Amino acid sequence: MKISFVGKGGSGKTTLAALFARYLAEADPVGGGRPPLLAIDADINQHLGAALGATEAEAARLPALGEHLGEIKEYLRGENPRISSAAAMVKTTPPGHGSRFLPVDGVNPIYAALVRRVGGVRLAVTGPFGAEDLGVSCYHAKVGAVELLLNHLVDGPGEYVVVDMTAGADSFASGLFTRFDATFLVCEPTLRSVGVYRQYVGYARDYGVRVFVVGNKVDDPSDVDFLRQHVGADLLTWLTRSRYVKGAERGAPEPIGGLEPANRVALDLLRTTVDAQVKDWAEYQRHAVEFHLRNAVAWANDRVGEDLAGQVDPGFVPGPQVPVR
């Protein structure tokens, strides 16, 4: 299952994305062992590595997806006859017959080059928005690497891809927001935070995106009442202010067993909710094609110099039947 964490900047979405990823990484379900897991930092503020326990120096050494977009395109293109070259691929290019697909876990050139283990979690990062990008580049070009990966990533039950997204409604600058089976919107009990919630669901619901609100920094029942008043039935659960989380944010993460029992129950509910989602691969591909055609008309045809509608493979649906490498 593909899972995103979104919310207002400062709401704690990165902290909760890291907490949930570490919770999954340390899980040992009966008879199953630890599940296949991949975490991806797609936020313009690259803090997921640090939240997972990387030092500043270790985080700086993580290879960036955005700096290897050409290699990613060349690999995922595979032998798809509808794609004339890797240079003709854009962030929304959907897969088709002949494309290469990635598993959540496994051995392939992309993961070997760009995925590293941090705090027990396999992590890929988009890379920072550097000084050389200021005024001349858009961060969504870097995040395009994440969109391409997710378009070509085949996940099954009990497998998890956890993505820390850009803050606020900035996620809607591309079709990336449709790539998830469950979206957890982290919401503080404040008017600004619930304002982001309203903006997000206003866009997401038009595309059938499943949004679940996770309250954060809850101090007392009045905070829960406030969230219920403003988000209603979308409130899935909440986490209280946490000594455990504070320690992790100060660079001293403990084993997940040290988490407060009530907050552990909240993470259990997040996982149960994810596992209950029904994956619709046909709808997944349909959204990919829709946003690809929009981007083709808006800018991509002119940039590439060809009609990118031809990259769409009619009737193709990804899923567990396609070979992954």
Score class of each variant (00 low, 15 high):
Leu239Arg: 05
His152Val: 13
Asn301Pro: 11
Arg192Lys: 15
Ala50His: 10
Pro103Val: 10
Gly135Tyr: 08
Glu260Arg: 04
Leu69Asp: 10
Asn108Lys: 11
Val297Ala: 15
Thr166Glu: 14
Val209Ser: 11
Val162His: 14
Phe180Thr: 09
His68Trp: 05
Leu16Thr: 08
Leu65Asp: 02
Asn301Trp: 03
Pro318Asn: 02
Gly12Pro: 03
Tyr75Trp: 15
Lys8Arg: 13
Tyr160Ala: 07
Gly10Pro: 03
Ser4Asp: 07
Val30Gly: 02
Glu56Cys: 01
Gln277Ala: 10
Ala296Cys: 10
Glu159Ala: 06
Thr166Trp: 00
Leu270Met: 14
Gly215Tyr: 11
Leu259Ala: 09
Asp219Met: 15
Ala145Arg: 04
Val118Pro: 04
Leu16Cys: 07
Ala59Phe: 00
Pro95Ser: 01
Trp238Cys: 04
Glu306Val: 00
Ala167Val: 10
Tyr284Gln: 10
Ile256Tyr: 03
Val186Asp: 05
Ala88Arg: 02
Arg116Val: 09
Ser11Ile: 07
Arg116Trp: 06
Thr273Phe: 08
Glu58Gln: 15
Arg264Pro: 09
Thr183Gln: 12
Phe226Ser: 07
Tyr203Pro: 04
Val317Thr: 08
Ala54Thr: 01
Val214Cys: 09
Gly106Met: 08
Ala88Gln: 03
Lys246Gly: 08
Arg228Phe: 02
Gly195Asp: 14
Ala27Cys: 08
Val278Asp: 09
Ala248Ser: 13
Ser242Asn: 03
Leu24Trp: 04
Asn108Trp: 06
Val161Gly: 10
Phe226Pro: 00
Val317Gln: 03
Asp164Val: 03
Thr272Arg: 14
Val6Phe: 09
Ala296Leu: 04
Asp220Leu: 05
Glu67Met: 05
Asp302Lys: 13
Val115His: 06
Ser99Arg: 06
Val213Asn: 01
Asp43Lys: 07
Val213Cys: 03
Glu249Leu: 13
Leu149Met: 11
Ala27Gly: 11
Thr93Ala: 06
Ile44His: 09
Lys8Cys: 08
Gly32His: 15
Gly78Thr: 09
Ala145His: 03
Lys91Trp: 09
Glu74Arg: 12
Arg100Ala: 01
